[in-house]
């Protein structure tokens, strides 16, 4: 028995609708502000010159692993400034990621870091604890950023300016 024409029209209509939905979804994702290729060396200089890192030191792969549990391969590139002493909480992490999985890993690591620092200073360092309550995590397509400490907001503003068009 031949299939009625209305069924065929319904199929074509469904496919067009689903294709349109997919196209809109992809279009919206592409229209989001795209991270521009950010030179981490330049960003590092910008952050230092703006005086946002007085209580931080350039971090290493080992300190990144210790603090966040992140390996060098967990993202495409990291910019990390660690607290200058164990009583400081001033910290900056910018990760360039190439997949949602990497972004989710780094985001989760940042949130875990905030919780860990809060636990470290709760009932012990009230200033540090309140600074950690104001720590910032920001994600924009190809970048995940984390700032904490006295200049967290200024540092985050500079980072966002550097990675967003």
């Amino acid at each position: 028995m031949k299939t009625p024409l209305r069924v065929k029209i319904a199929f074509v209509a469904c496919m067009l609708l689903l294709t349109a939905c997919l196209a809109v979804f992809i279009g919206l994702r592409l229209r989001r502000p795209h991270p521009q290729a950010c030179d981490f060396a330049v960003l590092s200089e910008t952050l230092s010159e703006a005086g946002t890192l007085p209580d931080s030191l350039p971090g290493s792969d080992a300190s990144l692993k210790r603090a966040f549990g992140l390996l060098p391969g967990s993202a495409e590139e990291f910019l990390y400034f660690e607290p200058a002493t164990f009583m400081d909480v001033d910290e900056v992490l910018v990760a360039r990621v190439s997949s949602e999985a990497q972004a989710a890993d780094v985001r989760a690591a940042c949130l875990a870091r905030i919780e860990a620092q809060k636990n470290n200073f709760e009932s012990y360092g009230t200033d540090q604890f309140s600074l950690m309550n104001e720590a910032l995590v920001y994600e924009n397509g190809g970048y995940v950023c984390y700032t904490a400490g006295h200049h967290a907001a200024e540092a985050m503003a500079l980072i966002r300016k550097a990675i967003e068009r």
Binding site: L30, S98, S99, E100, A103, G141, G142
Partner: peptide, 8 residues
């Protein structure tokens, strides 16, 4: 290429 994050 407008790279989008890879959906997990």
């Amino acid at each position: 290429a407008h790279d989008l994050p890879l959906p997990i």
